[in-house]
Design a protein around this nucleic acid. Structure first.
Lengths: 137, 137
DNA sequence: ATTGTACCAGTACAAATGTACTGGTAGCAA
DNA sequence: TTGCTACCAGTACATTTGTACTGGTACAAT
């Protein structure tokens, strides 16, 4: 069940749907960021296409169709990012990480957040290593 | 001079071109990752389109056309990542950073690299702050 | 009963995209 | 000089994408 890729436009709607699933066309329509408005009917079309592509399902609840996402936001994100990585960075992620935190100005808050993340990961790593050792893998 | 967006396919070629510019069609063709082969003529078409869109220029050097990228890889990357960020993460980058280092298994080496990066940034930040203070901005 | 109002399914359609064939030519091998 | 190669410009074309109109209908307000 290899889902077909999503176009740029579909992606926006897919993400919105994930975050609010289940939702009506109108709900999605209204949650559009106002910097890129879109016709109600256009949203409709995108949702229909998402369903066709297997990313969503829907039921007709007395006159109103309710769409539900069939995939987690995380999996859509993963898929999309994977594509990006393979297209631009030969599949490895560190170059992108670097790009994100080097080529763009980072705020102190973000830096702080990042630091915590790293510490946390390091901690986790240590634990994993230990338990591995314990199990004498 | 707002360059038009690049499609997924164009992006691959654009990146390849950036990395080797100037290059002939054949060179690009041969540097294609073998997991997604493509006809020579298709590469030709992509390059032509890149030129039309303003991302590349070319000259005919005695029977062979030589393409050069007109933009830095970094700016193409930036543009593409920006798009992704706005589409999937409301424009902020930390969620993507998080995704990259949390949702995907990270190796010790990568973690180490990340740690260094963070330290380096912290250092830089401190310096900046100081000089700002010195200048009594 | 009449008229809006919402929403739906279907259809439309130009532009962008992915992918490639073709006919022509210049240079080199035979 | 005759092919065979490489390469080029141009053209082709089915799909996908972006974007939206339409005609029909059910429910609500008049």
């Amino acid at each position: 069940m290899e889902l077909p890729g999503l176009s740029k436009g579909e992606l926006v709607i897919a993400k919105l749907l994930c975050d609010r699933s289940p939702a009506t066309v109108r709900e999605i329509f209204e949650s559009l960021p106002e910097d890129q408005p879109m016709d109600f009917a256009t949203v409709q079309t995108y949702l229909r296409r998402l369903e066709t592509k297997g990313y969503a399902s829907s039921i007709l609840e007395s006159k109103t169709r309710i769409y539900s996402s069939k995939s987690q936001a995380s999996s859509i994100v993963k898929r999309t990012v994977d594509e990006l990585l393979s297209r631009l960075f030969g599949g490895s992620k560190m170059p992108l990480v670097r790009h994100l935190i080097e080529e763009r100005s980072i705020t102190s808050d973000e830096l702080q957040e990042l630091k915590e993340l790293v510490d946390q990961l390091a901690e986790q790593k240590k634990t994993t290593a230990k338990s591995k050792q314990a199990r004498k893998k």
